[in-house]
Amino acid sequence: MSSPRRKFKDRFASRLVQVGFLVVVLLLWYLATTRWGVNKLLLPNPLNVWDQLADVIRKGEYLNDLRITLTELAVAFVISTVSGTLLGYAISRSPYLIKVFEPLFAGIYSIPIILFLPLYVLFFGLGPASKIALGTTISFFPVVLSTIAGFGNVDKVLVTAARSMGASDYQLFRFVLVPAALPVILSGLRMGFTVALLSVIGSETIASLAGLGHRIVNLAENMDMARMFAYIVFVIAIAASLNTVVSVLEARGRRQR
């Protein structure tokens, strides 16, 4: 058995490895640009990137792109959430419908839906509509599949018990089905959100007129490396905070069911 002292040391050492990793990466980056003469067009100086990041945030230049990206994301996620949960619930009411539709959705979900992007661009143009369409399509599947799984796998005993106590249809839905299915559905929603975010930024990167993904590509094409890196850091931070918020909401939803 390990003593508390050794455990503490162990924990400390593993933290050290993690912090050390970040420090070493930053240090190597710094040395590569200042000492080893790596081309600034390949790798900008981290201090420059930091200045650019401060500049981007100070000037508020990101606001328009951020607004566009977030709007696309929000619309896509709302559409897929509403359609996915409603359709998923309807399908989950019948084991037969589950057998018909579940493999169909799972099958489509297994092909890389990013392939449809050229079609959507052709169909909806380079503006936000194609991003919304792709984000909706991609996030629809985890939502609908988890809704089917959540409502479809509610323990029969719980339903029987509630019925035996005289629960009405509404009471059954509100106090049995929803709480039982919620954890699965919430994790599906979280996944849907994550993939919607990725596909919105992805389609902005590949073919677009505006948005954060577009901005990064634009800077890459102008070889404005320091600013591009600054934007990458910015977008990663935004994505991380959005995902954190969603995870927190998911955890809270689980607790409050």
Binding site: L198, I201, G202, T205, I232
Partner: peptide
């Protein structure tokens, strides 16, 4: 793994 890799595609 959590980093949205699409942002670094240009790199």
């Amino acid at each position: 793994y959590g980093i949205p890799q699409i942002t670094i595609l240009p790199i």
